[in-house]
Computed example of a mutant assay.
Amino acid sequence: MVDRVSLSITIGGDLAAALRDDLVARIQSEGLALDYDGEAFGTEDFPADGPLSLYAHEVAWGRADELESFCVEQGLPFVRWSGGSAAQFGPERAVFTGAGEVALFAADEDGNLIIDRDRAERLGSYEAIIAHFVAGDPAVPPLRFLP
């Protein structure tokens, strides 16, 4: 049986308008909405001047792989939080800045970043710990569709 948890994802950046329907299809296939337990996402639901924030309960493994892969392919920054499943996996935050790899950070059930003693010791300094928290909490730019 697949573990299912809550998930939220915020997406921003510039996307070719010709790919708008592809983005909508991926959002819908993941069962994401503008609110937890909200109505299905539609093309009219894009924000006018900010990043797109989406939510769902009961998401398999707490991942939106199809949507996240699309964002990585298109260079769309995103931040995803997913809850944990007892004795299986903990809550996490995934961060993609628009380039490079998706970075994973430990989080709590409220979406706050956390570190344990081992991570703090490996980071080695207060400045490195603060840099870790900054890297895990980037501002997601507005989502814009370009001609």
Rank of each mutant, 00 (worst) to 15 (best):
L113H: 06
L23Y: 02
L7E: 04
F70I: 02
D65T: 13
D65I: 11
A120Q: 14
V134F: 00
E121H: 15
M1Y: 07
A48W: 06
A99G: 11
P142L: 10
E127S: 15
L146Q: 14
A60M: 09
S29V: 02
I129A: 07
R144Y: 11
T43D: 14
L54G: 00
P147W: 01
S8I: 00
A25F: 00
S8L: 01
L19T: 03
V79N: 00
G124T: 14
A16R: 08
A87M: 15
G42K: 08
E44H: 12
S8C: 05
Q88G: 08
L19W: 05
A99S: 15
D108M: 06
V59K: 07
P51H: 11
D14S: 11
P141C: 14
L32Q: 03
M1T: 06
E39Q: 09
V140R: 09
L52A: 01
L104F: 15
F96C: 08
E30S: 08
P147F: 01
I9K: 03
R63Y: 15
A25M: 04
G83D: 15
S29Y: 00
E92W: 05
H132N: 03
A94H: 14
Q74V: 05
A135K: 09
G84W: 14
M1L: 09
A18N: 08
V24G: 00
F70Y: 00
D14A: 13
A128R: 13
I115G: 05
R93Q: 10
I129F: 05
A60R: 05
S53F: 05
D110T: 04
V102E: 10
E92Y: 10
F96N: 06
G84M: 14
F41Q: 04
D110E: 14
I9L: 02
Y55G: 00
A25P: 01
Q74W: 03
P138C: 12
R20D: 01
L7K: 04
G98C: 11
L143G: 10
A25Q: 10
S125R: 06
V24L: 12
S82Q: 12
L113I: 05
V95M: 02
E109L: 02
E68T: 12
F78L: 03
D65P: 06
V95L: 03
A120W: 08
D110L: 10
G12I: 04
I9C: 00
L34T: 10
S85L: 02
F145R: 09
D22H: 08
D37L: 07
A87C: 15
G13H: 03
G38P: 02
A128I: 11
G83N: 11
L7F: 01
E44G: 13
A131L: 07
N112Q: 13
F145M: 06
S69P: 03
A60F: 03
D137K: 10
D35E: 11
C71K: 14
V134T: 15
D49H: 13
A128Q: 13
A106M: 12
A60L: 00
L15M: 08
A17E: 11
A103C: 03
S29L: 04
S125Q: 07
V2F: 08
A131R: 10
A56T: 01
R119S: 12
A131H: 09
G100K: 11
R117G: 14
W61R: 09
S69A: 15
L52H: 06
D65G: 10
L32R: 02
P77I: 08
P77S: 10
R20I: 00
D3R: 03
